[in-house]
Simulated scan of single mutants.
Amino acid sequence: MSSYELEGRIRELRQLQSLIEEAQAEAEAIKDTIKAHMGDAEELRAGEYKVTWKPVTSTRVDTKALKAAAPELVERFTKVTTARRFCVA
């Protein structure tokens, strides 16, 4: 692929990423409107659609507190990984 072709593909990628960001922002705005309409309700039916907005509880390890309380334990069970990050600037 020539430099010119590569530049065109990168330009196309940036345009598509911009469209995706705009669509995601619009989708979030629509979700916010639906949530506002639902208020405290956990379920909503509209025609063929069923929308749920329920609380979800999750449990996570507080790594900052764990590092302060037992740094040797954190050191023992910490795993380092390496990945490549793709970015177009």
Rank of each mutant, 00 (worst) to 15 (best):
R60G: 05
I34P: 04
V74K: 00
K54M: 05
S2M: 03
S3C: 02
K79D: 03
V56T: 09
T63P: 00
T78R: 00
K79L: 07
Q15P: 01
A68C: 01
G39W: 07
Y4H: 10
L6M: 11
A23W: 04
L16I: 09
V51Q: 07
V88F: 06
A83Q: 12
V51D: 05
L16V: 09
R84P: 02
G47I: 07
E75G: 01
V88P: 02
R60W: 06
S18K: 10
R11Q: 13
T59K: 10
T33S: 13
Q15I: 07
A25W: 06
E12R: 14
K79R: 08
L16R: 15
S58L: 03
V61I: 14
E5D: 15
E22V: 13
D40Y: 06
R45A: 08
Q24M: 13
A36G: 10
A68H: 03
P55Y: 06
L19Q: 15
K50G: 02
K54R: 12
E43H: 03
T81W: 03
R84I: 09
E12A: 14
M1K: 12
E43C: 04
E12L: 08
I10Q: 08
S3W: 06
E12F: 09
Q15F: 06
Q24A: 10
D40I: 06
W53M: 10
Y4L: 13
R60V: 12
W53F: 15
E21I: 03
V51A: 04
E5W: 04
D62K: 01
R60A: 14
T59S: 11
F77W: 02
